[in-house]
């Protein structure tokens, strides 16, 4: 499954991208932040389109919090 998902570095300017991700939440309430994250995930998921990649990313995101689930 994870084969479909790129986990090697793939972004040219990580600091720039990271700052933008943090910037997304600037001035937002917790609830708005939740929604902004959700919107970002949906936009990126649609852009990727490939179910295998999306499911592998979901699994990887969950695994770092709850290994084995």
């Amino acid at each position: 499954m994870t084969d479909a998902l790129k986990t090697e570095p793939n972004i040219l300017r990580p600091d720039e991208v990271y700052a933008r991700l943090v910037g997304l939440h600037e001035g937002l309430s917790d609830e708005e932040s939740h929604r902004a994250s959700a919107a970002l995930v949906l936009l990126l998921a649609n852009h990727i389109g490939d179910e295998a990649v999306i499911f592998a990313a979901i699994a990887a995101a969950r695994r770092q919090l709850r290994p084995g689930t």
Binding site: E31, H34, R35, A36, A38, A39, V41, L42
Partner: peptide
């Protein structure tokens, strides 16, 4: 849950 509500509302606003 709050997370599933955030997803739902994000879908609707997008």
């Amino acid at each position: 849950t709050p997370a599933s509500r955030a997803l739902r509302d994000a879908v609707l606003s997008l």
